[in-house]
Design a binder for these strands. Structure first.
Lengths: 347, 347
DNA sequence: TTGTAAGCGTTATCAC
DNA sequence: GTGATAACGCTTACAA
């Protein structure tokens, strides 16, 4: 910057002024400065600038794990709107470990980020942390799932409605013995999906045995083992609503392995609509939510706050769409399924 | 920091000294400072520190697209070793657009990052950029694929050997009409895989018609359309080596759609060994490379440089493993495949 | 309109 | 061993 000032024959302050349009610099000098900037390929130090301005152009993003197929899309969504507004993403994985989350939260603050987007880890309670950010004027928005007592901005999918619609679809096809394998119920998204499921079952006045609700982690292995449990029940379910697509994948594997067919013997619906659901056989029906949109919405919300939107906490809920593929079908006739139940009984 | 000094009754400099172990502070004061730090929950400003030290604890990571299933693993690998050494990742997507890459490269420098990990975009030539980083003492390592004229540190998979082994396996099974669908051949990884393929074919003295080599983008759609081309050839291939798993997925779809069976009519081997290859039907054989390891190795290399390793540019090449699943089988007998060829001919 | 200078939170170089 | 103090590169009153 010194060099530019020298090269353009102006003062340091003037350079800054043309850089930030913070004062009208008269024409001869102005172009000289601009040229000097070009000539030297100057880029302002984000560090110095951040230190002085008391905030940087970074947006902290805390997620459980990029490697989990649903999250990259939301990272990408956030990055896209952040980038186009001149912000950069600094990415932190927590592994669902809320002490690691805390470390990131604390350190991230020292970068004076423009904002924070958080997909909370298990059991996280970040009210105090968020408060300290808010006092520094830094927006924090939680997405996908909410920590306990969260009162700040949030963006989530309409989990309840999504689950409700999926379950209703199964019911309309004639299924009466419908089970669900949920994610960890301390996560709000898993809980809400279960609620939607329950409501649909209740409205249809269908019986819902406690064993028909299995809780596990949001992964393939969980879906696999819990499906084994479900299929051993008498009578076994003819349809399974999975808490997410990874679980649904496990369900599919377990069903196939037990000699049953999907969708003839067991219908499956997942949640998230991951790409890999299209290529399974049969392809997976799923409640589709846009991770990308989750990310863009969160980033947009953050930037709006930055630009002065001081309205009370927003809770944006994104629509879901039931994506029907080949993993659902009407149940076999009562007689047939009775036979199947008996057969399994003898094993 | 001021507050700490006051609370501990010492000078600012002393606080800095205990913080950085840059001078031995005697015991009574030392603990007082530490306690004050605890009491105030102090965290040093990474911004100020970076400005002063002339480098931050950030590592810039530039990749084409997190949303591409192979990259999250490498991001995660890099993040893990970076994090455990106190570094943070700042993530940039280029969309394979090398002008966007340039923007990131230029801006990232103003954060004074501790290092840079780059998966180059199409056609990128970052020798000049890298040079400017190197002059600032900042390490740059390229991974997965290399830009033209790259002479700096790199970490890649052994693409040639991987492709060679996959092709050899097909040959050993008895296939003689083996085609390949490559990624964009200006990318080094795509080119190397083709070379490995070629070498295996040549060694086995198998004929290789030019039409049996199809180039496309590294995605499902590319694999799909090029497979349609291949299957219309007379005679059609009985095995296809795909440049990566996304292409292989497209191959599988096209094969299935054309009424042929995999692996009976067409064997398929992909590259990368993505998770989604396990759940397709049939499950996908693939040349397995560890994206995670790619990431950790790159980060480690960077940190080694940081700690004074000034040896000449390293080119680390990671082993691949051929993962056999259900998408490969010996070809049908000559007669049968002749029949098939004739049948397709009539269409 | 333009220049001067203070200060952002650190680290590092010195005297003491 | 400890404490002033300059400097890192920038922004922003304020003075000219």
């Amino acid at each position: 910057m010194q060099e530019i000032a020298k090269l353009a024959g102006v003062s340091l302050g003037t350079v800054s002024h043309v850089l930030n349009n913070t004062a009208t610099v008269r024409e001869p000098r102005r172009t000289r400065v601009l040229q000097a900037i070009q000539a030297l390929g100057y880029q302002p130090s984000q560090l110095a600038r951040g230190l002085r301005r008391d905030h940087t152009n970074m947006i902290g993003m805390i997620i459980p794990d990029v490697t989990n197929p649903f999250f990259p899309a939301v990272v990408r969504g956030a990055e896209d709107v952040a980038f186009s507004s001149g912000y950069r993403l600094i990415l932190c994985n927590t592994d669902n470990d809320h002490s690691k989350e805390l470390i990131h939260l604390n350190e991230l603050r020292t970068y004076l980020p423009a904002g924070l987007i958080v997909i909370p880890s298990n059991f996280s309670d970040l009210t105090t942390q968020a408060e300290s950010y808010r006092q520094a004027g830094t927006g924090v928005v939680c997405i996908d799932r909410l920590p306990k007592n969260w009162s700040g901005d949030s963006v989530t999918a309409d989990n309840k409605a999504g689950a409700y619609n999926a379950t209703r679809h199964l019911i309309r096809l004639g299924h009466t013995r419908i089970a669900t394998i949920t994610g960890p119920l301390h996560l709000t998204n898993a809980k809400e999906r279960l609620e939607g499921f329950r409501r649909a079952m209740k409205e249809a006045k269908l019986p819902l045995a406690p064993e028909y609700i299995q809780e596990t982690r949001f992964d393939k292995q969980g879906g696999y083992s819990k499906t084994q449990v479900l299929l051993r029940l008498i009578p076994p379910p003819t349809a399974i609503f999975a808490g997410n697509d990874m679980i649904a994948l496990g369900v599919l594997l377990a069903v196939r392995e037990s000699g049953l067919r999907c969708p003839e013997d067991v219908s499956i619906i997942g949640f998230d609509d991951l790409d890999l659901g299209e290529t399974t056989n049969p392809s997976l029906s799923s409640v589709s939510q846009s991770g990308y949109q989750l990310g863009t919405t969160a980033a947009r919300l953050l930037l709006d706050r930055k630009e002065g939107d001081a309205s009370p906490a927003k809770h944006i809920v994104l629509e879901t769409v039931l994506k029907l593929r080949d993993s659902v079908a009407p149940p076999l006739s009562r007689e047939t399924s009775g036979t199947r139940a008996r057969r399994r009984n003898k094993e």
